[in-house]
């Protein structure tokens, strides 16, 4: 019971972290994370290799960030592009694996989501508490100002989007054992992450404090959000 709660809590907290970092650093609402989560489930079914899952996410995230940097001029354009990318993944999965709508895997690594969530938070908090933290806060605040003071915002954007995408695929991979895998599996997780992230943003905190608040609100909201996932 407690373990199930922890899995739900960390699943929601992880998705909230990914949504939040993408929005604060990349300045767009990454709606492809739901599709990537679902893709993780399919990878678990067809190629049960977590390294492959993480690498595919990394590659997708890099391509997504490059596409956004190249053709988008506003937060809405970038968000719509990421929505298109998310739909592309889902429909791609549906077309390629149509023989049966739901898939089930015969292993259950879902408890490892706790580890993935904890490591992700420690990593982000570590960055914000290190000398790099101030640079990250500047990027969160104002991209152009950060650029004017020597911060390579393009690189930070690409790294953030790529790592977030890798984490989303890995989370889907690890959660697959407790899910009926379908192209829309990730939407519940994505929506939970967006809701928690939006609630935390109301506190108007920056840096490590924001991410700690994100963790706390995920904990408080996990019981209600379980319905969605």
């Amino acid at each position: 019971m407690a373990l199930n709660f922890l899995v739900s809590f960390f699943s929601i907290a992880l998705m909230a972290l990914l949504v939040s970092t993408n929005f604060r650093i990349g300045k767009f609402l990454n709606l492809s994370l739901g599709g990537l989560f679902a893709a993780g489930g399919y990878i678990a079914y067809f190629t049960p290799n977590p390294v492959f899952a993480a690498l595919s996410g990394l590659l997708f995230g890099t391509l997504l960030s490059l596409a956004i940097s190249k053709i988008c001029r506003s937060v809405i354009e970038a968000t719509v592009l990421s929505l298109g990318a998310g739909i592309l993944i889902e429909r791609g999965l549906e077309i390629v694996h149509r023989s049966s709508y739901y898939y089930f895997v015969d292993f259950d690594y879902s408890t490892y989501v706790i580890l993935l969530g904890a490591v992700s938070y420690l990593f982000v908090l570590g960055i914000y508490l290190s000398p790099l933290g101030l640079k990250m806060k500047f990027v969160e605040e104002d991209h152009e100002l950060a650029e004017l003071y020597g911060i390579n915002t393009g690189m930070i954007f690409t790294v953030t989007t790529s790592l977030a995408s890798a984490c989303a695929v890995l989370a889907g991979f690890l959660s697959s054992g407790s899910l009926a895998i379908s192209p829309t599996t990730g939407f519940g997780y994505l929506i939970s992450g967006i809701i928690v992230s939006a609630l935390t943003a109301q506190l108007r905190q920056v840096g490590a404090v924001h991410y700690l608040a994100l963790l706390a609100i995920s904990f408080a909201a996990a019981r209600f959000m379980e319905v969605l996932i």
Partner: peptide, 12 residues
């Protein structure tokens, strides 16, 4: 769905 996705991606 793929066509919709492509249009959204190219929408900017």
């Amino acid at each position: 769905g793929i066509v919709y996705a492509a249009i959204l991606i190219l929408s900017p």
